[in-house]
Simulated assay, not measured.
Amino acid sequence: MNEMMFEVNPPYNFDRVLERLSLDPLNCVNQGERWVKIPYYGEQDEVITVQALGDTDYPKFKIFFSENSNREAQSKHIHHIFKWDTALSDIQVHFLKTDLKPIFEKHLGTPLVLEFNPYASIIKSIIHQQLNLSFAHTLTKRFVEKYGRYKEGVWFYPRPEEAAEIPVEELRELQFSQRKAEYVIGFSEKVASGELNLEELSKKSDEEIIKELVKIRGIGPWTAENFLLFALGRPNLFPKADIGIQNAVKKIYGMDRKPTIEELEKWSFSWHPYLSYASLYLWRSIE
């Protein structure tokens, strides 16, 4: 197995990352030994292991690759997933001058970690729509374990062309609703046929991506914003309609009611151009 060492500019709290990743039962995480195995979707399925060696102030990592893997491409992918090229110190300094100072001090060095694969990210969001988190994870796990692939302790989502061929009746047997089953299959058909190219889509602006995605049956603004945040890592997104965001802001400002959209717009003005990090830390503050 090939391996390489990498240092990240502080602050960077990988233990917070592992904590979040461990919430998804499909992820292969060891918080004690501080590593996670990442599915790499290439021509061949490969597994990359990322292990933390340092701490928040001196973040160091060891990356383990499969033999004969494309280390350059896979290293770039890992950097993107874990946002190792993002200067969290600049973001921290910015928010210490705002009303969000307390939560940024408490959750110092929490990065915006991405989903491992853009297609899988949308499939996961579609499955999670309008479900409580526990059953959402259960349903996603059933889907991936039945139609995906397993390698070295890691689950891979089915490829679009595989999911596009699943009969609706089979998903109904897993407790998918009729509509949700149709949404998963229909979205997969668009990706498999090339009608929707996620790589090309990712090069467009936030507004263009949302406009394109919400045309697809089963994808609304919530799923589109989720894609921008957790598949692409766009830095300046603030889903004002999100209940978690509203509850976190209500708590921070000591309100006896949920904030209005107008209030959220006013307070978030000083959080630009890092609204995505404001969103992330607000969610963390109530978890």
Rank of each mutant, 00 (worst) to 15 (best):
I210E: 07
L237G: 01
S193G: 00
F187E: 06
F187T: 04
N247L: 06
W155C: 02
I209S: 04
K151N: 11
R149Y: 04
I126V: 15
L198I: 14
G148F: 09
Y147K: 08
K151T: 07
F135D: 12
E208K: 15
P158D: 09
R179D: 10
V214W: 06
L198F: 09
E173A: 14
E152M: 07
A164I: 09
S134Q: 11
L201Y: 06
D242N: 08
P239F: 10
W155Q: 02
A224K: 01
I216C: 13
W155P: 01
V191M: 05
E162M: 13
L213E: 03
G244W: 15
S121F: 04
K190F: 03
I216M: 10
Q175K: 12
I209M: 06
E195M: 01
F156T: 15
V168W: 02
S193R: 09
R142N: 10
A241K: 13
N247G: 15
N247Q: 06
F227W: 02
E170F: 01
L237H: 04
A241C: 08
E165C: 13
K141D: 01
V191W: 03
Q246G: 08
D242S: 04
L196A: 13
I122T: 13
F227A: 02
Q246I: 11
A192M: 04
L112E: 00
P158A: 10
G244R: 14
P235G: 12
L228R: 03
K124P: 01
I166C: 05
N236H: 12
V144R: 07
L229H: 03
S193H: 07
E225A: 03
K240N: 13
S177I: 06
K203I: 07
E161Q: 11
E182Q: 09
Y183N: 12
V113C: 00
G186F: 13
I126E: 04
